[in-house]
Amino acid sequence: MQTALFIEQMLNGLQLGVMLFLMAAGLTLIFGVMGLINLAHGSLYMVGAFACASAAAATGSFWAGLAASLAAAAAAGAIVEILVIRRLYRRDHLDQVLATFALILIFSEGTRWLFGSFPLYLDIPPLLQGTVSLPGGSRYQLYRLAIIGVGIAVAVALFLLIAKTRLGMRIRAGESDREMIGALGVDIRTLYTLVFALGAALAGLAGALVGALQSVQVGMGEPVLILAFVVIVIGGIGSIKGALVGAVIVGVTDTMGRFLLPQLFGLLMPPSQAGLVGGALASMLIYIVMAVVLAVKPQGLFPAAKG
């Protein structure tokens, strides 16, 4: 039983990690290429979830919702980039923080305006309902496994996109020398909009996928955003590989901490108190991990090779 529970929690951690990777990949790409810190990334996640929930409610199909979430988040990302973000690339980080903070306020209140304060619900598609049996005898939700699968697929696709395609080459060139690729005739404005929309679509995808597990509500993006920050700080800002490793570390540490720490303290003290201390410590665990990583490597585990 204990092994089965352990495996189950491990998979939960992996699923959280994959989710965080989808968020962190966009953030780190946007920072790596444009040098922009985007607090509104969590809002794009929320946009994806709301688009998925409302499209799924209208058409009755989760898959239509998923497509809608990608389209809506990418479109929202592109519009925001063209209207606001574009003016921020040359500004300092303080201005970027403030402008994107303002965007969060606008997105959150705007969404509340459109959809009301009540959460929406999204059903798991029939194809992915049900469970799979795990070694050790317990059963695991198929949908969560599917999320892990999607995350791995996106990671591979992203790797191929960046390493093998022309767009990827331009993205990498943009990371190492903006002026030069502009001088070589690459339309850098369109490239930036594309990268931003790509990051937004990934965030929207994450929001839609998680929407079926939790309720879809205003403010759902912020906790994920902050975890994604922890991920890219651990992984090294600007590095996709770092985002992947960091996401898995954070996802697994957080889930396993909540599972194991109360039990660990249970060996030392009475159960009620162990639950309290273990729970409180578990809620801080990833931040402690982050502090330790930074103490050893201030630039994160995989510092992006930049001049």
Binding site: V230, A280, L294
Partner: peptide, 24 residues
Amino acid sequence: RTSGVYFIMITLAFAQMTYYFAIS
């Protein structure tokens, strides 16, 4: 020990840590 964007995100993360501690 860090600066720039790292500093922004890390201070945010630590504040969040105290927030979750207060909640739990």
